[in-house]
């Protein structure tokens, strides 16, 4: 295995473009180093992107927050403006692993690891976050939900690196939230995760909403049919029941060591209901 620490994004993409298939980007390393423990894992090249200028910064512009790919999640929780604007995203990012993991893990890495249970991803998808991708052919920007294509698989082409996650500044009267279920209080992988982001109209009813589900399908998924149930409502009981039913119905989970199909489907509905209420309150809504 070769370890490289390029200082420009061009050098990084060039290294990856030239390497064999067993080349990996190293940001926080909290997934990659776990994989390296496996006796069957072999890497030819690891490209550490932390020495590339700007990678470790959160930049606030007039209309967005740009989160560098090497920003540890703990730093997001320390960024006051980001916390105020996107509390659900920050909470989700801060749920990943332990304090120790928080000091290293990144949202870009969480996304690229392409686990359907990734905590930050449903929140990012609900927030309509964009991934800024650098590659041999230049920069492109895609919606976060288009990055994972299956467990452990992404739509990134050879040589491409996510260099930043971009969150637009939220509109007035909007709010986001993320909830997950784990068996313990910490340290577990999400059994179900739900991100909700909604905006209210002048009447205080839901004008637009995005609902994203985690750990109940092969990838984190946006769930428009669930979102539809809330539009025009003030989250009355019937609306919340419809939301829960839609989320349960949209869930296509598996039985595994972390949970059962029935459990995941049922709890997806429960968490959606609870997350929607939090987002609604954050948006300034009242019932």
């Amino acid at each position: 295995m070769r370890y490289e620490r390029p200082e420009t994004i061009m050098d990084a993409t060039a290294l990856l473009a030239q390497a064999s298939d067993s080349a990996f980007v190293l940001a926080g390393g909290t997934d990659l180093l776990v994989k390296m423990q496996n006796d069957d894992f072999e890497a030819e090249l690891v490209v550490d992107i932390k020495s590339i200028a700007g990678m470790a910064d959160v930049v606030e512009t007039d209309d967005s927050f740009v989160i560098g790919a090497a920003v540890p999640c703990a730093a997001l929780g320390e960024h006051e403006a980001l916390c105020a604007a996107w509390p659900g995203v920050v909470e989700a990012a801060n749920l990943i692993g332990s304090t120790q993991i928080q000091g290293r893990c990144t949202v870009a890495g969480n996304l690229c690891n392409a686990s359907p249970a990734a905590d930050s991803v449903p929140a990012l998808v609900a927030a309509n976050a964009q991934a800024r991708i650098a590659g041999p052919d230049g920069i492109r920007t895609v919606a976060v939900e288009d990055i994972p294509t299956g467990p452990g698989k992404t739509s990134l082409a050879k040589g491409e690196i996510i260099e930043a996650i971009v969150l637009a500044k939220p509109t007035d009267r909007s709010g986001d939230a993320y909830l997950r279920f784990i068996p313990r209080t910490e340290m577990d992988i999400a059994v179900v995760g739900v991100g909700v982001c909604l905006a209210l109209n002048d009447d205080g009813a839901v004008a637009s909403v995005r609902v994203a589900l985690g750990a109940v399908g092969p990838t984190v998924m946006l769930c428009p049919e669930a979102a539809e149930t809330l539009v025009g409502t003030k989250l009355e009981d019937a609306a919340l029941e419809a939301l829960a039913a839609a989320c349960s119905a949209a869930s296509t989970p598996i039985d595994d060591k972390r949970g059962t199909v029935d459990f995941r489907k049922q709890v997806a509905g429960v968490l959606a209901r609870r997350a929607a209420l939090i987002a609604f309150e954050r948006a300034g809504g009242s019932q």
Binding site: P183, R184, T185, E186, M187, D188, I189, D256, K257, R258
Partner: peptide, 16 residues
């Protein structure tokens, strides 16, 4: 055995 690690063999953590 499917859970041969502390991630999925869930012993109580401090916050539990």
């Amino acid at each position: 055995l499917q859970n041969s690690g502390f991630l999925d063999y869930r012993i109580p953590v401090c916050s539990d």
